[in-house]
Design a protein around this nucleic acid. Sequence first.
DNA 1: CATTTAAGTGTACAGTGTATACATTACAAC
DNA 2: GTTGTAATGTATACACTGTACACTTAAATG
Lengths: 216, 216
Amino acid sequence: MNIANNKITRIKRSTYHHGDLYRTLLDAAVELARNGGAEAVVLREVTRQAGVAPNAAYRHFADRNALVQAVSLAAQSALAVEIEHEISKINTHEDLAEFARAKLRAVGIGYLRFAQAEPGLFGVAFSVPHDLSNATNPASAGESGLTPFQLLGVALDMFVEAGALSHERRMFAEVLAWSAVHGFAMLVLAGPLRALDKTQTEIIGQRLIDMVERGL
Amino acid sequence: MNIANNKITRIKRSTYHHGDLYRTLLDAAVELARNGGAEAVVLREVTRQAGVAPNAAYRHFADRNALVQAVSLAAQSALAVEIEHEISKINTHEDLAEFARAKLRAVGIGYLRFAQAEPGLFGVAFSVPHDLSNATNPASAGESGLTPFQLLGVALDMFVEAGALSHERRMFAEVLAWSAVHGFAMLVLAGPLRALDKTQTEIIGQRLIDMVERGL
DNA sequence: CATTTAAGTGTACAGTGTATACATTACAAC
DNA sequence: GTTGTAATGTATACACTGTACACTTAAATG
């Protein structure tokens, strides 16, 4: 936004066509979501930042909801990257069971780290209604090509392989593990546990993952 | 709302003063939240239904957010009632350990039942930022005078009493149990697990509570 | 080059939350 | 009872939102 002559003027654009408006709009929307969550993604503001008329957005997104949905996928992708980063820090590759444990923990820790570091994005990643189809949507994948859901699945498969989890209990294990971590994140972020500071969150997060490991 | 002479007219009111506007507004807001969640609570619509000018609401609520907050407390109270109802169905009062187990399960089941039966209210109960202070706020209590959080606490205390949970692990146990159940509810309601039908939800819900019991 | 199609603009409308100024009534003090 | 005051409801207005509709411009395609 640019003030000149006491009048708000758009950022000038030499060409009538923008060139890469879709990306520009999405990037601006992500930035808005980053600080302010889903409700901060206001269509007119996004177009303003892109230096374009409000209705131009409708050439690229069916409506505001479609834009928020796109942000949500981007947020899930960023989450996947965070999880991958946590996984990459594992160095005990010898014992399979140990490795599987470490991997599962990494998924959980990465999830919670992301929620704490990027509350706005985290909120829009899951507070927006989705189908399960998005759990395998490449748009929400990280650098490994896997979505957060799939990364969790891989870790659990390894658990089974290592003999630490029976086939019977493997079923729905994603959902159980995910529920615990997700719920904690929600309660800390927007819920009654907002008062917890970072170290407390870390400690309880560890205990939560302990519970999941023991209880699965 | 009342249509007459092709013109929207308010419901007539003989007295200038409404009498019990606070309750009327809150009730209308709760009803809107019930089908439509938090975002369906629109201030003007609430006043419309009460047959009153939009700004009349500001005599009773600081702003829209305060109204939604009040709805949130009401929703938590309704949740407490549901949990109490589930607890009241327990009939094995002999063995303390058995009773504690049943009680913990009842809290979890009641929580999930409520989430499924009243998704709109459930959403506004926790998706709205709160302090932990509200976890003991009488306005969010059920008929027993206890809030959902407190009901869970009582069940866990009983667990300790029965020797099924060490004092060491008692700490933060509310948060762990709550996280798991809450996360599942969120994922089923607004998240990627929306496709699950009622029976599947029931089954996985049971397994989730199994996990919590084992893992705590 | 001619035409079709994609991508931006301008204008307009219904709807929202809420600020400010005013009107009406209940209630308490004399 | 009369009167002053505080509580409660109304009127008007503003800035802002999402989005429908008709248009202009430029890129793509034959």
